[in-house]
Design a binder for these strands. Structure first.
Length: 288
DNA sequence: CACTTGACCTGTCCGC
DNA sequence: TGCGGACAGGTCAAGT
């Protein structure tokens, strides 16, 4: 669901759509965690101008001119959808997944001075939104422990492999999903990159060779960059800032393709549980 | 500290 | 047809 490429797609979409807009109103249901400080909302959110939209790992950061930041985690089913004034009160004609907003999964609505809206939808209510002083964002426990961004230009294969040494006795898939090892990897891109590197997800980290780590580093970056290019993966819920689907699933090699054939060797793809997650492999290419 | 499991939620799908 | 249960998966708390 929303992993690094999906959150990055939302970030870039919002960056183009909401910078410079002024927030004039906020409504919300009883969604836990927002607003975490009602007085801060009235003083630092209402009337604030959006000055930047950033991402760290799977967390979105909407910076305001008041030196406060909206910190947002979409978790599994969160959506952030912008609607310009021209769409107010009407379904978006290009949406394939959502219609008129707000709908029954809308948790927070931000209104801008020009009549546009930003909707935070979350069917399963795992996601959250908080308003924090910008200076305090990096003090959050998650930000303190989260690992490096895998797509940064100066992030090397050697640094990548070194991050795993702490998790020597767990499976490579569990370690990949651990946000303190590397930021932003979730179930989809864990499976896709392990297939690319021909590594079985249940292999213990300590058995993975340097050459395999190098391949995993290369393939993880490749699948994530391709996914960003394709606007992310839409399995069920994910949409970008305009409410539209991503198309990476059309290019997936193994994820959600059990029963279909491995695009590399033609063997039937299988699914099982690993690291507590549905896991997809080619049993010919990826040997335990 | 490393590691695993369950909890948090709701909508969907499958078998009876 | 209705209904119970499994499943979906990001992160954190609590367990070993």
């Amino acid at each position: 669901m929303p992993e690094l490429p999906e959150v990055e797609t939302v970030r870039s979409g919002l960056h183009a759509l909401i910078i410079g807009r002024i927030i004039t109103a906020e409504t919300h249901d009883t969604a836990k965690g927002f607003p975490n400080a009602p007085d801060a909302v009235s003083r630092f959110l209402i009337g604030a101008t959006v000055i930047d939209v950033r991402r760290r790992a799977k967390v979105l950061l909407i910076d305001l001119a008041t030196d406060y930041t909206l910190v947002i985690h979409l978790k599994m089913t969160g959506q952030l959808v912008f609607r310009g004034e021209e769409n107010f009160g009407a379904g978006h004609p290009n949406d394939s997944l959502i219609g008129e907003l707000p709908d029954r999964s809308t948790r927070v609505t931000l209104t801008f001075a020009d009549g546009a809206h930003l909707y935070f939808n979350d069917q399963r209510k795992f996601g959250w939104m908080r308003l924090l002083p910008t200076m305090m964002v990096m003090d959050l426990p998650f930000m303190q422990k989260v690992g490096p961004e895998p797509l940064e230009a100066d992030f090397t294969a050697e640094q990548f492999a070194d991050r795993f040494t702490r998790r020597a006795k767990t499976s490579i898939k569990a370690a990949l999903l651990d946000q303190s090892v590397v930021a932003g990897v979730g179930n989809i891109y864990a499976d896709e990159s392990l297939w690319g590197a021909k590594i079985h997800p249940k292999r213990l980290v300590k058995t993975v060779t340097p050459a395999e780590f190098e391949a995993l580093y290369t393939d993880l970056r490749a699948v994530m960059n391709l996914a960003i290019e394709k606007g992310g993966s839409t399995d069920k819920n994910y949409v970008n800032a305009e409410g539209k689907r991503g198309s990476y699933m059309d290019f997936a090699s193994v994820f959600r393709r059990e029963g279909l054939l491995c695009p590399r060797c033609g063997t039937e793809i299988i699914k099982f549980k690993a690291a507590g997650r549905g896991t997809h492999i080619c049993p010919q290419c990826q040997v335990e």
